[in-house]
Design a binder for these strands. Structure first.
Lengths: 214, 214
DNA sequence: CCCGTTCGGGACCCTGCGTCAACTTGTCCT
DNA sequence: AGGACAAGTTGACGCAGGGTCCCGAACGGG
């Protein structure tokens, strides 16, 4: 269908097409407006109208791109996940042993949270004490990767044989809840947090093994 | 009417008064309707109208009791916390040592979650992958109690001297995230989960001490 | 029994939601 | 180039929910 008869092969991508262009622009504009407004008002208080107003587009146009504010939020979270996952992946490769792997996972996560707080503020900035968290496809994929890694580590005997489901839950729970406290500190130290989480998990884990043998 | 108006002092509470009565009833009705509707539609999709409709009261009446659906949600969460905290407290007293204390905390929490899933389903049952969590005054008070206990334990030398803030965050994170997985299991074992969490935390913790010494 | 107070009822206005028909703009074909 | 068609934007519209407010009813004290 989108066949550019000439220059089909390598240069095809160079023909943006004005239509495609504005489409991409509009989508970006809406997402950026979403980031801004969510951070400003919190998820609950934000309306589709608030978002679209900030872009200057018409209300109807919004629905050409997203079904609801929830979808915008999801897109934002997905983008976040897409930024973190490559880092996690490279850390995963770099790791020479299990400890390095665990440390790497925590480090990347905490580092990201601290250095890109704007995205995480969204979750906090909510009237009252309401917190929202969304497990988007990308985020879930990230969790799955984590769990798969753990399974592989266990299969290879690198990590002790324990309940992988609970273990990954523990890792994720520790990471999220600690990052919450981390960003509240006046001088947040990623290293300190990473150290804490890594030591806790690693040694707790080795104890779980012994228990398993018994 | 031999109204015991005289017995004002000690027996005063025996005078319900029809006014007070319906007031209490209405409040209860709204909260119960809230429980039902939140569980049915999820927090996001629920409207004040949905709640009040289920009670048969008029829309205006709602606002005599709560300012918003958020306040109803908060009331529900507070009630939940009020159910768990006494159990946590008695477990706290029963505990003969630090291990028992940790185990007790996790056990009570997991046990509550499993046996009162209806309340926790509210958090999950949300369109898309949106999760809500509300830290109400009662819940925060519970967290504070936990943290205070940890501080005391550290001060008494029962528990190692570590970053209490992170430690309580880790406990809470583990508890919440694991409970999420726990309820999804076909045959959820509270003991198993408690064992896992307790062993993980306790031994991870002792490792943190050694690190501290070094 | 009567009056003051307190509260429930529901109409009312406002704002946001999602849709749709009319218009505008890019694209393709001759 | 120019016209015709497709794609996309616009904002008005109908509808539903949020929060308010005044009226009337029920309660409670004298």
């Amino acid at each position: 269908m989108a066949d550019p008869s000439s220059t089909t092969d390598t240069l095809a991508r160079q023909k943006p097409g004005k239509r495609e262009q504005t489409k991409a622009n509009n989508r970006r504009a809406i997402i950026e407006a979403g980031r801004y407004v969510f951070a400003e008002l919190g998820y609950g208080e934000t309306t589709v109208r608030d978002i679209i107003r900030k872009t200057g587009l018409a209300s109807g146009t919004f629905y050409n791109y997203f079904k609801s504010k929830e979808e915008v939020f999801q897109a934002i979270m997905d983008e976040n996940a897409l930024r973190v996952r490559p880092r996690l992946r490279s850390e995963r490769i770099r790791a020479k042993n299990f400890e390095e792997w665990v440390r790497g996972m925590f480090f990347v996560f905490f580092d990201y949270v601290v250095n890109d707080q704007s995205n995480f503020r969204i979750i906090r900035r909510n009237t009252g004490a309401l917190r929202v968290r969304m497990d988007t496809p990308e985020i879930i994929a990230g969790f799955d990767e984590l769990q798969a890694d753990l399974e592989k580590a266990v299969a290879e005997g690198i990590a002790p044989k324990v309940d992988i489901d609970y273990l990954s839950a523990a890792m994720i729970g520790i990471a999220f809840e600690m990052s919450d406290r981390l960003v509240l500190r006046e001088d947040p130290s990623v290293e300190e947090a990473t150290d804490f989480a890594t030591t806790l998990l690693l040694n707790g884990l080795s104890a779980l093994t012994e228990k398993d043998d018994a």
